[in-house]
């Protein structure tokens, strides 16, 4: 939208060659301002809102993180003490470990599955639009509903998963008791919700790959699999980087699924088996009411996301570069 408005304004400003430009009247000044300032005016609502609800809170969080700041009681400047405590806090590193673990278990199969799904949806078939919309259905279900249903599926005494496992002699597995079982259950929840979304993004990207590439490959005798590996995948590289980064950000902010999996237990299990970093941040802010410490934790999360996205980016670029 801004592009079309900008170009129209530009067209007005550029005068056709020929007669000399008129004197610099008020109209011209206004027109110049229009060209220079209008685009900023048009995009300003987003940036104003971003400043108000994004940038300012972020900056303020730094300020809070430098204090011993409790809900009730004193607010004392303590410098980097909170950050020092976070770095040596075993509960924090436990949460980091859980988050990374669930991120890997959830994201890798999710993106692979999405790729396969997108490839399948890209074929000619009946009721194609319906099927394509269908993969998005999990996305529009309320996240709380998803978590509650899956929580019941994975329940120890009366869950359907355990009922099925019972046929194979596994009795009443407590999915919340162990790290890997809880991670697995939560990852299934995450994948159920996000695989279709990523598949659609891949599908959109696949459709922009020129047909003639495939035709040329077919003439050269390349099989479908070969076409997928040698044409589709390299052409999807920017999209894969995008989904990987978005998934990284989402993965580091994983909150609702593990929270509801533990029935609202902010500590994430009896031994914090599935407490993520955001849950840990929330626990400090709204259970212990230690805002200073919680702010320090949230800045650590920010750093982790930055680091994770950067690593992803570099790694995926490298991988593509060698091809």
């Amino acid at each position: 939208m801004t592009v079309s408005i900008g170009s129209r304004a530009g067209a007005r400003a550029v005068r056709p060659p020929g007669p000399p430009p008129p004197r610099r009247g008020a109209r011209t000044v206004l027109a110049r301002w229009d060209v220079k300032l209008s685009p900023y005016l048009f995009i300003s609502p987003y940036f104003l809102l971003f400043f108000l609800f994004g940038l300012f809170p972020m900056g303020y969080t730094v300020w809070v993180a430098l204090h011993d700041w409790e809900l009730l009681g004193t607010r004392e400047f303590v410098g980097l003490e909170n950050f020092r405590l976070v770095l040596t806090d075993p509960q924090f590193w436990n949460a980091v470990r859980n988050t990374l673990g669930m991120f890997v278990i959830a994201t890798v199969p999710q993106l692979l599955l999405a790729l396969v799904l997108a490839n399948a949806l890209n074929q000619r078939m009946r009721a194609r639009t319906l099927v394509r919309m269908g993969v998005l259905v999990p996305m529009v279900t309320s996240i709380a509903a998803v978590a509650i249903v899956f929580g019941q599926l994975f329940s120890r005494d009366f869950g359907m998963v355990n009922w099925v496992l019972g046929w194979f002699g596994v009795e009443n597995l407590d999915w919340t008791a162990r790290r890997w079982t809880s991670w697995l259950a939560i990852s299934v929840m995450v994948d159920w919700r996000w695989t279709g979304y990523n598949a659609l993004i891949y599908l959109a990207a696949m459709q922009s790959i020129p047909r003639d590439l495939y035709e040329a490959a077919a003439i050269d005798g390349a099989s479908r699999a070969r076409q997928f590996w040698s044409i589709t995948l390299p052409m999807l590289r920017p999209t894969i980087i995008f989904t990987a980064i978005v998934s990284t950000i989402g993965g580091f902010q994983l909150f609702t699924e593990p929270l509801l999996f533990g029935n609202g237990d902010m500590a994430g299990g009896s031994l914090r088996q599935f407490q993520t970093v955001t849950m840990y941040m929330f626990e400090n802010a709204f259970r212990r009411f230690d805002y200073g410490y919680a702010s320090a934790v949230s800045w650590m999360i920010f750093m982790l996301i930055l680091l994770g996205s950067l690593l992803n980016f570099v790694w995926l670029r490298r991988m593509g570069g060698t091809k």
Partner: peptide, 15 residues
């Protein structure tokens, strides 16, 4: 191809 893509997007938006 383009058309169906756009339809897909508008479908997404309404959802």
């Amino acid at each position: 191809m383009r058309r169906s893509h756009r339809r897909l997007v508008s479908g997404l938006a309404s959802v």
